[in-house]
Amino acid sequence: MLRIGITGGIGSGKSVVASVFAALGAPVYDSDGRAKWLMAHDTRLREQLRAAFGAEAYDAAGQLNRPYLARVAFNDAAQLARLNALVHPCVGKDFAAWSAAQAAASRPYLLKEAALLYESGAYRGLDGIIAVFAPAGVRVARVRQRDVHRSAAEVEAIMAKQLSEEEMLARADYVIYNDDSQLVLPQVLALDKQFRRKNLE
């Protein structure tokens, strides 16, 4: 079974593209969504996060204190690396178990969607990577429309911390252009056909 990664910078539309693949019957693992779930529910990870970031990592009701973690980690490279070193291996194990279940169900291929596919090392062990591309200006406009509380400067700051468009495109095996100049569906259909054919080889 082929294991394909799908990534893209904030506002590129990678989740929209992944949902099109899902509509075609491809199982999609949402790494970012699962990371949030694991941080909230995985007992061992919860203990590790409390030990690393203090009791404030969770509120009085035991819920993940996302604003606190964001404030502590996302503006401090060392703390962010510490957070990622705890979360990414946990997500990796979760993905391994999930992908084994998909293989047992005889799926032709699966997708692993992750914003930090390269940065986390999650690209290793995958059979190919799809990069979803949109120009920076388009991405900023999309994010500001979706997240009205964010300023353009805040969106650009997030983009600056992510892999550059040039490097992402250079490292990708496949590119889907979601820049409003091409239709996404024909591009996804072509790759879906290609992946299903490869699985039969």
Rank of each mutant, 00 (worst) to 15 (best):
107 R>F: 03
83 L>R: 14
107 R>H: 00
128 G>M: 12
131 A>R: 07
86 L>T: 06
3 R>Q: 14
83 L>G: 11
48 Q>C: 09
113 E>H: 02
3 R>W: 01
197 R>I: 08
89 P>F: 11
10 I>K: 07
49 L>H: 04
156 E>G: 00
2 L>Q: 14
123 Y>I: 06
185 L>Q: 15
46 R>H: 07
187 Q>G: 04
151 S>P: 06
44 R>W: 03
150 R>I: 00
180 D>T: 08
108 P>L: 09
149 H>W: 05
12 S>T: 11
192 D>F: 15
56 E>H: 09
137 G>L: 13
24 L>K: 15
35 A>D: 04
176 I>A: 13
122 A>K: 10
9 G>H: 12
155 V>K: 05
185 L>S: 14
8 G>Q: 00
101 A>G: 03
200 L>D: 15
65 N>P: 11
55 A>W: 10
31 S>Q: 08
131 A>M: 01
164 S>W: 05
71 R>Y: 08
105 A>S: 15
39 M>R: 14
123 Y>N: 09
108 P>I: 04
29 Y>W: 08
34 R>N: 00
30 D>F: 01
81 A>C: 08
53 F>L: 12
140 V>D: 04
63 Q>N: 06
172 A>T: 09
34 R>I: 06
3 R>I: 03
143 V>R: 09
186 P>C: 06
175 V>A: 08
181 S>P: 02
152 A>L: 01
78 A>C: 13
161 K>E: 13
84 N>G: 10
48 Q>G: 06
83 L>D: 03
129 I>Q: 14
66 R>N: 15
86 L>G: 07
110 L>E: 14
120 S>T: 01
11 G>W: 11
52 A>I: 05
78 A>D: 09
28 V>F: 04
39 M>E: 10
153 A>H: 05
